[in-house]
Each structure stands twice: as structure tokens, then as C-alpha cells.
Design a protein around this nucleic acid. Structure first.
Length: 354
DNA sequence: CATCCGTGGTT
DNA sequence: TAACCAAGGAT
């Protein structure tokens, strides 16, 4: 029996639509089908939780209400509105794509798969999400939620992120879309994936429970299949504080890599197992310091996807090579890694600056 | 295909 | 609390 025959897609689709009308979340980006607003929300939501996006989405739409206003913005203004969301290339790509969209004579991302696929920041997911949510096209926007829901619904025994499993998920969602609005179903599947079909499932609340093959076979906990996570690497790091009465020594990070072209106080991650004091001394020496940096109290843990760094703050006796002195307030308003910013705020509160 | 790219919430 | 999770994209 093929996948298409093994599930009552019409029934499942109807149950999902009815459930969504009663239980769907009321989110600000669902008040409009404006392709630009859909694009903004979908980009912000990449690997980022809804609760974190809501206020920043509203602030962004207020500052850049349409594609043209974004296209005319400065990168610094864009990055400032992105502060706290991480993955800053998303913001830079949005600015670049807005300019391409306006140059092509559109006032927002068009319903044109080939054009969208050529825009920076538009991968398979975002392009499909704009088409399904803004234009109601029967296109499967496969994110983590839809992959998880599809994996369980079809009892998929392969990783849904890899090519073969991805195709099965795509067919499942397209099967549902034969019977209900793609826009409604996409939103409904998202809400299912963050509620009843969250990583820890609550099948008794799920409208697809009567249709779910994993539920039928008792394999829900095994779905979706995923490969083992890599261990988290742990390191120590050191940051150098040098300040005068009202100014702070900062430098700009190189282009490319982590926090491309962001500003920081001199900061370095130690090698495996290295104490932060050793790192601080090496960093200071490499920047022309003759005396040992003085250890201070503030420290932060910066966590990334597959590694984390506990960074401690040290005071340098003279201005490190390669830094410039900026008024403290100006320095703190530059695009800066949030971990460094937290370190500096702690230093301000403890009176270490000024 | 694996890895990098941020940050904070949840369990 | 350490591990995992969250509406991915670029390389």
C-alpha cells in the first residue's frame, strides 16, 4: 500500500482545519498576508522561538513598514533592530534581498519560485513559506515542526531532514493541501508541531490522532528519526577591558566567520583546557601589553550550537594595539556580540568603568 | 552531507 | 543541570 493510500488525507485535512479554527495561536504576523511581512516573520523565526520574535517583529515592521523602506535603510540600523536574535547574516541578507526585490520592480517578494530562490536568505523553507502563507500556493514549507508532524503521521523511519525522508514529508503535506487552504494548513501544522505534536507529544490533544500511523503502531517516541548529536565543546576565554574617564577601547572583528564585522573589546578563546588567565596574558602580550592583565569579577558564558565559552574579564594597563577609544555610550550602541555586551554591562554596574 | 552561524528557553 | 530545542541558510 502506498503512502497516499494508507492515510485518509481528506479526513485528516478536515480535522486539522477544524482544530486550527478553534485552537490556532493568535500571532501578529497572522493578521496580514502581506508578502513582505510574511518574509520578515519567517526569516526572524528561523531557529528562533516565537516568544522572542514577537516584540522584535513589531519593532521591525514599525521601523521598516514595507520593502522599499527596508531597501533604503543603512546596515547599522538593520543590525540594531536585529540585536538579540542572533544569526546576523539573516538581517544582512534581508537588506540585500530587499534591494534586489525593489530593483526588479516588485514591492515585496513575488510569487515566483525561480526569482525567490535567487535571493540571499531564501532557502527552500523561506521561499515555500512565503508562497504558501502569502499567496496560498499548495507548497510544502518544511520546517522542524512540519517534519516532526509528517514523520509521525506517516511513521517515517528515516531522518526527515535528509533527501529521502524530506520527499516523504513533502508528499504528505501536499496530500493534505489537496483538501484545504495551504495557508491555513501550514499555520495549523506549525501550531500542531508546537503543541500536541511537540517533541514531547500529547497525542490525546491531537486532532490527527485517529489518522496517525506512528500512534497506531506505538512508535511516536521514535519519530522523528535523527542522528546522534555531537558533544558540546567547552572552552575558557578572556576579554580585555581598557577604559579612560569616559572612553572604552574597542575593535572591529574581521569580515567573515563569527560576528562578522561586529565590534568587541579584545576577546580570545583559549585552546582546549587552557585557563582564562593564560589566554588573557597571551592576548594582552600580542596587543603590546607589557604587564599581566588584572583579573576582574565579571564573567559570562556564551553558548553556541555546538560549543560554549566561559569568558572572564581582565583589565589591561594600557590601550591594546588595534583598538580605538570611543565614548562608552557610543561603543555600547555598536553592533556587538551580546555576551560581550553583558560583560560590559556588568562592569558598568560594578563601577569598573568610569 | 557536515559544519558553521547566536541566543535564550525548556526539561 | 547539562542536554536539547527553536518557523534554516550558506558553503
Amino acid at each position: 500500500m502506498t503512502l497516499e493510500e494508507s492515510i485518509d488525507w481528506a479526513g485528516a485535512s478536515r480535522a486539522l482545519a477544524e482544530w486550527y479554527r478553534e485552537n490556532g495561536r493568535h500571532l501578529p504576523w497572522r493578521l496580514t498576508a502581506d508578502p513582505y511581512a510574511v518574509w520578515v516573520s519567517e526569516t526572524m523565526l528561523q531557529q528562533t522561538q516565537v516568544s522572542r520574535v514577537v516584540p522584535l517583529y513589531l519593532a521591525w515592521l514599525s521601523a521598516f513598514p514595507n520593502c522599499r523602506s527596508l531597501a533604503e535603510a543603512d546596515e547599522s540600523a538593520v543590525l540594531s533592530l536585529w540585536r538579540g536574535l542572533g544569526y546576523y547574516s539573516r538581517a544582512r541578507n534581508m537588506l540585500a534581498s530587499a534591494r534586489l526585490i525593489v530593483s526588479a520592480g516588485y514591492d515585496g517578494p513575488p510569487n515566483d519560485q525561480a526569482f525567490l530562490a535567487g535571493l540571499p536568505g531564501f532557502g527552500p523553507y523561506t521561499a515555500a513559506a512565503v508562497r504558501a502563507l502569502a499567496y496560498d500556493e499548495p507548497t510544502a514549507a518544511l520546517d522542524g515542526n512540519l517534519r516532526r508532524v509528517s514523520s509521525r503521521l506517516t511513521d517515517l523511519d528515516k531522518d526527515p531532514a535528509l533527501s529521502e525522508g524530506n520527499k516523504v514529508c513533502q508528499r504528505a503535506v501536499e496530500s493534505l493541501m489537496k483538501f484545504q487552504s495551504p495557508r491555513l494548513l501550514t499555520n495549523a501544522l506549525m501550531d500542531l508541531g508546537s503543541g500536541p505534536c511537540a517533541p514531547r507529544p500529547r497525542c490525546l490533544l491531537c486532532p490527527l490522532e485517529p489518522y496517525c500511523l506512528a500512534r497506531k503502531r506505538g512508535t511516536t517516541a521514535l519519530r522523528p528519526v535523527r542522528r546522534a548529536a555531537r558533544p558540546i565543546r567547552r572552552r575558557f576565554g578572556a576579554a580585555l577591558l581598557f577604559s579612560t574617564q569616559t572612553k572604552l577601547a574597542v575593535r572591529q572583528r574581521p569580515k567573515g566567520g563569527l560576528w562578522s564585522e561586529f565590534w568587541e573589546i579584545p576577546w580570545e578563546v583559549g585552546s582546549d583546557g587552557e585557563d582564562s588567565g593564560v589566554t588573557a596574558r597571551r592576548l594582552a602580550a600580542s596587543l603590546g601589553e607589557e604587564s599581566f592583565p588584572e583579573p576582574l569579577t565579571p564573567s559570562v558564558t556564551m553558548r553556541f550550537t555546538s560549543w560554549q565559552v566561559e569568558t572572564k574579564l581582565f583589565r589591561a594597563a594600557s590601550q591594546p594595539t588595534g583598538t580605538e577609544l570611543l565614548p562608552v555610550d557610543d561603543a555600547l550602541s555598536l553592533p556587538m556580540p551580546l555576551g560581550i555586551l553583558r560583560l560590559l554591562r556588568e562592569a558598568l554596574q560594578s563601577g569598573l568603568i568610569r
